[in-house]
Design a protein around this nucleic acid. Structure first.
Lengths: 225, 225
DNA sequence: TCTGGTTTATGATATAGGTCATAAATAAAC
DNA sequence: GTTTATTTATGACCTATATCATAAACCAGA
């Protein structure tokens, strides 16, 4: 699994990521606050399931270390990745607020430590800490924005657009590093496909076309934009 | 334009809709509060643009009467409908919280009266009225949930699934009325296509197949599920 | 009741992306 | 260093949906 963990100076990269995110007011909830409301930590192994689609939401989850993806599988077993989440981000809250079931599964991409708060405690936390609401609103707004942008692209049926949109959004959202050749899109071809609803082969062929058109660079199999 | 306005006892339907929504804690902001923060009303004609994609967000918008859709157009002029919004709902807030531009346009589906609050005033309102935050969170969570469900479907490339998912989600989200033959999906074939990223012809053919399979009924051109 | 516009409908054909098979290059595990 | 698994890659072929053309049914307004 690539994504973040293979990054050599991951910690350093991450810190600048957090700072940028904080400037954008997109932080998670402070650990100290969570601990006041009975938070507990749990370690998930790589590929371990955190929660499953169609189950009721029981906890609030925030990432201490590692990374997580939310995904769906259709009848033929084909995966669709709703999104990746990494250190300090939270995921899976909407059903907590809606008394609804999860629209997707959550799975550890690599070993991940999560801090969890029970639903009841979490709702109490929200009620008693108005400043947390603002953080939550910005967080949800951010994710809704991503979904809106991608929904319009995915619907178009045009593989080039889908991928370029994913890349451009990923650059800011996942904070990929700027290198000499441009931003390094640190996703496997398979992940690109699962995020856009395209097959691996189509991704491979499309990014080659995009390279010919000068929209991106492929150096040593790595994609730069 | 069909959607809501053609409904004979629209007002009555709407009221039950509101009540249900309120039980689900999915209300908008009270008019009285908005008026404390310099809200003004404005009438939009049918098809009039409320805001445009890629523009900065300047106001909070909430619907007094009528209905609104958010949409995108791709390079070939093909429309994708992000969603419909109707009385008492708000739309277009995410960019207000993110200092970001709109991911889509907003357009009046039918004549609509909106109540608007400037961005600065709105942020002040949010800061001074913590109870409004909860409403906003539930509202955003709801929309994020819809997008997650539809994203997974749209990505599958399977027209039958896409449409059934839209119908089932619409039944609860738009609160379509239950009649003798089932829930009446009060959308035109074109709207179904624009919401799922399919072409009209494909929608027409697919729902006929679904009828044969017993997944829905088509009576007098109307779709029931 | 006529008229123009929208919505629904159907057939013929094209094509983008999927599917399947196969393999080289690379990375991970032992 | 060797083995195994993953990732990238390419070709041949297929299929679902788009596209284009055409028209009937319906509705709204004059």
């Amino acid at each position: 699994m690539r994504f973040f963990e293979s990054e050599p100076n991951f910690k350093k990269t991450y810190l600048s990521f957090r700072n940028q995110k904080c400037e954008n007011n997109n932080c998670m909830i402070k650990i100290e606050i969570l601990e006041k409301y009975g938070a507990f930590r749990r370690l998930y192994k790589k590929s371990e399931i955190i929660f499953e689609k169609d189950k009721l939401a029981t906890h609030y989850y925030q990432i201490i270390s590692g990374s997580v993806k939310m995904n769906n599988f259709n009848d033929e077993g084909r995966e669709f990745i709703q999104g990746f989440f990494t250190v300090n981000q939270c995921f899976g809250e909407p059903p907590l607020f809606l008394e609804r079931t999860y629209p997707a599964n959550a799975e550890a991409v690599e070993e991940a430590e999560l801090i969890c708060v029970s639903k009841a405690n979490f709702l109490q936390l929200m009620a008693e800490n108005p400043e947390v609401s603002i953080i939550m609103i910005e967080n949800l707004a951010q994710r809704l924005h991503y979904k809106s942008v991608m929904a319009a692209e995915i619907s178009t049926q045009d593989s080039e657009h889908r991928l370029l949109q994913l890349f451009d959004y990923s650059i800011t959202y996942f904070n990929f590093k700027k290198e000499n050749n441009g931003f390094h899109i640190d996703l496997t071809r398979q992940q690109m496909g699962d995020l856009t609803g395209l097959r691996v082969e189509t991704v491979i062929r499309t990014i080659k076309t995009l390279e010919k058109k000068g929209e991106l660079k492929i150096i040593n199999r790595k994609v730069y934009r």
